[in-house]
Amino acid sequence: MDALRVGQRFDPSGYDDNEIFLRVVPRAATWRLSYMKYTAPTAEDFQRLKNELGHTGEQMAELFAVAGGQQWRKYTGGVTPREMSPQMLFFGAARLVLSDDELKRVLAKMREIGAQIEID
């Protein structure tokens, strides 16, 4: 996708809500528009992961930084399960695959940027 000029309008028709990701990158009076195609895992996908990990709902909530087991169930049940944002999924997946040292480096970068964060 081409970069947009300042003041130029982007027409989102043809994209659904999960396909558009805006990234503003000031570069010689132009801003870039990036997009990604994302489809959230289903409730069944999350249940399979929970079973593979042998986790409780509370442990899954902690993994994905959800308030607790009751909130986690909103992603795994009910008439219309909630879709997980790509950011939340990325966070949980990173915690599953990164080593402790790699995760510490990411957290250090977040702090350097200005966040205050501690993870047990």
Rank of each mutant, 00 (worst) to 15 (best):
E44D: 11
A43R: 06
L33P: 01
Q47S: 10
R32W: 09
V106Y: 13
S99L: 02
A93G: 13
E44H: 09
A40S: 06
M36S: 05
R95V: 10
K50F: 03
K37A: 09
E83K: 04
I20F: 04
A108K: 12
A93L: 13
A65W: 07
T30I: 11
K104M: 01
V24G: 15
F46P: 03
E83C: 02
P41D: 09
V66Y: 09
A65D: 12
A65E: 10
S34F: 00
R48Y: 13
G54Y: 02
K104V: 02
E19T: 02
Q47E: 15
A115F: 09
Y15N: 07
D100P: 00
L49K: 04
T56P: 01
L53S: 04
V79R: 08
A67E: 15
T76S: 05
M36K: 01
F91M: 11
W31N: 08
S85R: 03
R48C: 02
P26R: 11
E102Q: 13
E62R: 04
P41K: 08
E44V: 04
A115L: 05
A94Y: 14
R32E: 13
G54L: 01
V97G: 07
F21S: 10
Q59I: 02
S85P: 02
V66Q: 09
L107D: 10
K74R: 11
P41A: 03
S34A: 04
K74H: 13
F64I: 04
L103K: 08
S99H: 03
Q70C: 05
N51E: 15
A61V: 06
M88P: 00
K104I: 00
N18S: 11
A29V: 07
V25W: 15
S85F: 00
W72C: 05
G14A: 03
M88V: 12
K50T: 07
V106F: 11
R48S: 08
A61H: 09
E62H: 09
L98T: 07
E19F: 01
F46D: 10
E62W: 11
F64Y: 04
E112R: 07
M84F: 00
M110L: 11
L33D: 05
M36F: 03
M84R: 03
G77P: 02
M84V: 05
M60L: 02
A40V: 03
Q59H: 06
V24W: 12
N18C: 01
Q71E: 14
G14N: 04
R95I: 07
K74N: 14
Y75C: 01
L103S: 12
R105V: 08
Q70G: 06
K104A: 11
A94W: 10
V66S: 04
F64R: 03
F90A: 15
V66E: 12
F91L: 09
T42R: 02
V79L: 05
G54V: 04
G68Q: 07
R27W: 14
R32A: 09
I20K: 00
F46Q: 01
N18V: 01
R27Y: 15
L33G: 02
G68S: 06
L89F: 09
F21H: 12
P26V: 12
M60C: 03
Y15R: 06
V25S: 15
A29Y: 15
A28N: 14
F90C: 11
V79N: 11
A28Q: 15
L49D: 10
M36D: 08
E62N: 12
L33M: 05
D45R: 07
R48T: 12
Q70H: 01
V66L: 07
T76M: 02
V106G: 05
G68D: 15
R95Y: 12
V24N: 14
